[in-house]
């Protein structure tokens, strides 16, 4: 079945590297709670990696630490050899959250333009790029509408287009489809793969949906409940480009079942 893969592989320096990253929070009364316990992960360039685990396993904490929005208590994160702060300044990060977080007073196109304006990169060339990305996510006919006029799935597509507008090296997706209904989620899974095939980025994808993680990823990293640590690093041996029918193959089912068992055994019965 699937074999272990530490991700550093033969492609030289990893794009994202977490070295013994731990995070403890102070709670009232001076005691501390460990959210993350010494996590080390290397992610190669253009790799699609999912972080999976029960809620409270610190997957979103890892996301925030990689984005440089949260300082780790110990350890370090390097993105393309530099700390996250540098990656932010170089506009190498794209983020998609569970909620689309679009600005309601801006049109979809203007929402995509937001980060370019903030970064001072707006130009005729970026306008063309926005148009291409809106076409890529299928929103070209809705570009001049406001978010309240779009469905949840469309808003999430807009959020993906916005994240790609800066042409980042690394795309961080924090449970991007968790708030959508099952059909829309499947549809967007397929679309994400199509988009990724055309705009090849390194993606860190946080989810608690095992099937979704296996279908999308090159590699699935499973985490234990609090304090979070890596309990499995599984390479997904499914071919690319991935057809939805791949979900009916034995390799796919084996991966899903393996992860399912692992995560069930990791969660204390309560």
């Amino acid at each position: 079945m699937a074999e272990r893969d530490n991700g550093s592989g033969s492609e030289g320096r990893p794009l994202v590297s977490l070295r013994n990253v731990a995070k403890t929070y102070e709670v009232d009364g001076g005691s501390t709670v460990a959210a993350l316990q010494s996590v080390s992960i290397d992610i190669a360039d253009k790799q699609f990696v999912s972080l999976i685990g029960p809620s409270g396993c610190g997957k979103s904490t890892i996301m925030s630490i990689v984005a440089g929005l949260l300082e780790p208590s110990t350890g370090e994160v390097l993105i393309d050899g530099h700390p996250p702060a540098r990656a932010r300044e170089a506009h190498e990060l794209g983020i998609v959250f569970q909620q689309p977080v679009l600005l309601p007073w801006r049109t979809i196109r203007a929402n995509c333009r937001l980060l370019l304006e903030v970064a001072g990169l707006r130009s005729a060339e970026t306008e063309t790029r926005i148009q291409e990305l809106l076409e890529l996510v299928g929103l070209q006919d809705f570009a001049d509408l406001h978010p309240n006029q779009l469905s949840g799935g469309m808003r999430q597509r807009a959020a993906i287009a916005r994240a790609l507008c800066l042409d980042p090296l690394l795309l961080l997706m924090d449970e991007p489809f968790a708030a959508l209904d099952e059909f829309t989620r499947l549809q967007l899974n397929k679309e994400l793969l199509r988009v990724w095939a055309q705009r090849r980025k390194t993606i860190i994808f946080v989810t608690h949906n095992i099937a979704e993680a296996v279908f999308l990823s090159d590699r699935v990293i499973a985490m234990s409940p609090r304090p979070g640590c890596v309990i499995e690093d599984l390479a997904i041996p499914l071919p690319r480009p991935r057809h939805p029918d791949v979900r009916y193959t034995k390799d796919y089912t084996d991966c899903v079942v393996h992860l399912q068992r692992l995560l069930e055994s990791a969660i204390p019965v309560g």
Partner: peptide
């Protein structure tokens, strides 16, 4: 929302 602020900070706003 906190996430909107994080989004802005992700481009060093």
């Amino acid at each position: 929302s906190r996430q909107m602020v994080q989004l802005m900070k992700s481009v060093a706003a």
